[in-house]
Nucleic acid binder design. Structure first.
Lengths: 236, 236
DNA sequence: CCAATAGTGTCTATCAGACATTATCTA
DNA sequence: TAGATAATGTCTGATAGACACTATTGG
C-alpha cells in the first residue's frame, strides 16, 4: 500500500489512544499570597469538584496545544494571560477513572486585578490560596499538578524575574521581592535583589510612587524581553 | 446521570482525541561527536524515512508515559538508558499528515558502547552525527525535536554534569569537559570545570588511568545522586 | 631530550550575603 | 518628632575566567 492509499483509508479510532487533555495552572499574587485559579467541574467524572481550568482540544478551533490552553484560560479569565509556559505532561492509567489519560499542563501567570473571575457574577471560578488546597479535595491529580507548577515557579524566582507576570503592569520592587521570597521560601537580601535587576536593566522606572505606610516605593514596568532573561547566578 | 452510570456508558471514541505518541531523543557521545539514535520507519506515513524511536502507548504494557518511552528505547538499544527526562510535548494539526497529532518527547542519554544498535546485524537503527541531520530529510518534525533536545542538553551542560550519562561508566575529566564544550559551543577553562566538580564532590576517582598520547588521565565514575546536582552558578 | 596531554597554583573580576546607614513618607 | 517603609553604601566571601606553571606519559 502506498502512502496516499494509507491516508485515504486511515481512521484514527483504530489506535489505542488515551484520553488527552490540556490543563492551565494559572497563578497570581494578591494580598501577600500566592493563589491559583480553580473552576468547578460541571461534568463527570469528579463532577462538582474544583479543579484547574482545562479540557480537550477542539480540532476546529485549535491549531496547536498553545491554542487550546490559551482558549481555555481566556474563557475563565476574560483575557489571555501574559505568561504561559509548558510545564509537564502527565500520563498514566490511574489518574482518571475513565482509564488511560494524558494531560499536558501549562504554567501561567497574570495580575489578579485583570481577571474577570473576580466579578461577583462568576460563581464557578475562584482564586484559591495555595495553602488552602489540602482541604478542598480537588479533582483528579490536580493538587499534585499545582504543586509541580509551584516548584517550577520557585526555580524561576531563583534565576529570573518571571514571577513579575503575576503582578499588575506597574509594581514596586518590594512587592516583587516579597513574591520571590514567598516562592523561594526564605528572605532575600534587599540589596542583592535590587542589584541584579538593575544591572541586567530589566525594568522601566515610572514617575509614580505608591505608599505603604512609610517612604513611597517607585513603580516599575517590565521591559518586553525581561521575561526571557536568566541570571547566570542563582539567589538562595 | 450519576458518575457510576456515566462511567459504564463512557466510550472514549466519542471524544475529539488527537493522535498521541511518545518519542525518545536518545543522544550519545562517540569519537568526539554528539550523536542521536535514528530508526528507519517501517510503516506509513513517512515510511522508509529515518526518525527518532517512539510510538504509541500500549494500554496493556504501559502504566505511564515513562513506561512507554522506556519500552521503546529498550527495544532499539537493548537496555534502558541511564538518563531519561521529559523534554516537551508538541501538538498541532500540521506535524502529521493524518491530522491533529501530539507527541511527548523525552531526552535520553547513554554510552555509545552499551547500545546493541551498534551491532552489524542491526540495519534499521543507527547513530547519526547531529551535523549530518540536515541532509537526511527526517520523518515528521523530528529534526526540530532533535534540536530542541540539544538545546536542553546545552542548558544542562551549563549547570550540571548530566551530560556524563552520555559517556561510559568510567570516563576521564578531559572527555567530560570536551563533551560540555561541544554542547555549550565554546571552550571552558580546564581549571573552572574541574574545580566545581571537585568542590561539589560529584565523582568517584578510580585507580585506573587511560592515555591519549600524553600524560594518562584518571578515570572517574559518577556518584549516584550527581545527576540531580545543580550548580548555583553557570559556566559560560 | 621533545611533544603531547593531564593536572595545579594563583591572581583577578564579578556578584551574592550581611548589615549599617540614609531617605522620604504619614501621623 | 517618631515610626514605618524604601533605597543605598560598603565590606566580605564564594566562585568563574585567565593563564602560567608543573607532572607524567611515549617516542
Amino acid at each position: 500500500m502506498d502512502e496516499k492509499t494509507y491516508l485515504e483509508t486511515y481512521d484514527h479510532h483504530h489506535f489505542d489512544t488515551p484520553l488527552f487533555s490540556v490543563d492551565g495552572l494559572l497563578y497570581t499574587y494578591h494580598e501577600q499570597q500566592l493563589k491559583v485559579l480553580l473552576v468547578k467541574r460541571s461534568n463527570h467524572p469528579d463532577k462538582d469538584k474544583w479543579g484547574v481550568p482545562g479540557g480537550f482540544i477542539d480540532k476546529q478551533l485549535d491549531n496547536s496545544l498553545e491554542d487550546t490552553v490559551t482558549r481555555k484560560l481566556k474563557e475563565k479569565t476574560g483575557i489571555i494571560p501574559p505568561y504561559i509556559e509548558q510545564l509537564k505532561t502527565l500520563g498514566n492509567n490511574h489518574r482518571d477513572k475513565r482509564g488511560w489519560s494524558v494531560t499536558t499542563c501549562y504554567t501561567a501567570l497574570m495580575a489578579h486585578q485583570d481577571c474577570s473571575a473576580n466579578s461577583s457574577a462568576v460563581s464557578d471560578a475562584q482564586w484559591v490560596n495555595l495553602d488552602d488546597l489540602p482541604e478542598m479535595d480537588l479533582a483528579f491529580d490536580h493538587e499534585e499538578l499545582i504543586q509541580l507548577g509551584r516548584e517550577r515557579l520557585k526555580q524561576k524566582a531563583l534565576y529570573s524575574i518571571v514571577p513579575a507576570y503575576a503582578l499588575p503592569e506597574k509594581f514596586t520592587l518590594p512587592q516583587l521581592q516579597h513574591l520571590h521570597e514567598l516562592l523561594i521560601g526564605k528572605k532575600i537580601q534587599k540589596k542583592s535583589f535590587r542589584r541584579r535587576i538593575e544591572q541586567a536593566d530589566l525594568l522601566i522606572e515610572t514617575n509614580e510612587k505608591v505608599s505603604d505606610g512609610g517612604r513611597p516605593a517607585t513603580l516599575y514596568r517590565m521591559k518586553n524581553e525581561s521575561g526571557g532573561y536568566t541570571f547566570i547566578r542563582n539567589l538562595g
